[in-house]
Write a protein that binds this DNA or RNA. Structure first.
Lengths: 215, 215
DNA sequence: GGATTGAGTGAACATCCGTACACCGGAAAT
DNA sequence: ATTTCCGGTGTACGGATGTTCACTCAATCC
């Protein structure tokens, strides 16, 4: 029943990450103290240094972890988009619906990760903010290449694809933030209906966008 | 050369507000201490209480102040929208351009206020977050009634107008956040070009939106 | 099976924190 | 002219903070 040394280390490392996520739920990394984390985990303050150099380093690890789960979301959206391409007419509407469903599901299940990204993106230590911004840019770029494969965007310029991807990403981020702030289930339902309509409006715009064509 | 008592009080109150805006530029209200503010202002810590009950109360005052300047922005946008309505064709494009111009100008001039709203909206004390959320909802509602007066939205449902207004507001907020994060002027120019295109895409969608009509 | 390694310990430090309390001195009120 | 009011002062406190250092003791290595 003994525990290997690596297992033990990994276990308290996890405990530290979880404690940090929990303690910053209603606050921010910049207001989190090393001693709070240590107390929550049940170790002595100095033991923290065996795992991270500083709270900021802890934050960077949480960025990695949070975006791992966000990447899982993007993979799901991508998989959900591999639908029956014969029904060309309302294909994009289906895509919007499925994307929103996947987002909602992930926000509910990875609530702490999304809350962490939403907060520290604007309020975290500089290094953490930069790391999050960088990851979000990667997401935008991936989405842009996905959009290029969709019907109707064949003639689009690279710039327009990037701009559209940024609009989708920021709308999704805003929606996640709203969901995190929403208390009652009724408010959440309204947020979901709202983003659905918003994306549909954008999609209608996309369908009539004169990119590449004569203006 | 004597100073009236009210003048003196107002002067240090202003100094406290300014110090708080400055000190949270790279951090957040939840990481701001009463003593830092006092030292920055040049008063003794206990004198802080002559003006505010707590850092949170200070935050609420900053919310009021920041939204006063944001309301000034909205007023400018509204004024900029009272253009020559004869050129019906590209009227909406003009509107987008002017709105973006006004936003950019205000972000540059009221940088600290916008940064404060962007940060504390997600990372501030609960009361501050709620206050900001409430103010942003008011902005959305105002924008929705403005949109109703525009040509082409006559047949729109109240819900659709609200949803569209929310999309505009969140896009503007996201843009302001990006501008605050952008270091070089080149990056800022790209952000401006991006939001211009994004709003145009939405506007195209709006022009073809089947609200009220048979779907 | 003895030496080594390394996660966690515990005490100590200088510094910061919010807040309580008694006080000062000049503007305002009488 | 005297009293009241009140923004700002100075001290003092109990507690939290980051970091140091020397330590224990069980898993690992040779």
């Amino acid at each position: 029943m003994t525990e290997t040394r690596l297992e033990r280390k990994e276990r308290t490392r996890r405990a530290i990450l979880d404690a940090a996520l929990g303690l910053t739920r209603e606050s921010s990394l910049v207001a989190l103290s090393l001693r709070q984390v240590a107390k929550e985990v049940g170790i002595v303050p100095t033991a923290f240094y065996r795992h991270f150099d500083s709270i900021e380093a802890l934050g960077l690890a949480l960025v990695d972890e949070s975006f791992a789960s966000l990447r899982a979301l993007l993979r799901d959206v991508r998989r959900a988009s591999e639908v029956d391409r014969s029904a060309a007419e309302d294909l994009v509407d289906q895509l919007v619906d499925r994307s929103v469903d996947v987002l909602v599901d992930h926000v509910r299940r990875q609530r702490d990760h999304f809350a962490f990204i939403a907060r520290e993106r604007v309020a975290g230590p500089t290094a953490v903010r930069d790391a999050i911004r960088h990851e979000l840019e990667l997401c935008e770029r991936e989405l842009a290449t996905d959009l290029a494969r969709l019907p109707g965007t064949a003639a689009w310029s690279v710039d327009d694809l990037r701009v559209l991807a940024a609009l989708f990403v920021s709308t999704m981020v805003t929606t996640a933030e709203s969901m995190l702030a929403a208390g009652r289930a009724e408010a959440e339902r309204q947020i979901i209906a709202t983003v659905r309509t918003q994306l549909r409006m954008v999609v209608v715009g996309v369908a009539h966008w004169p990119s590449g064509a004569a203006v």
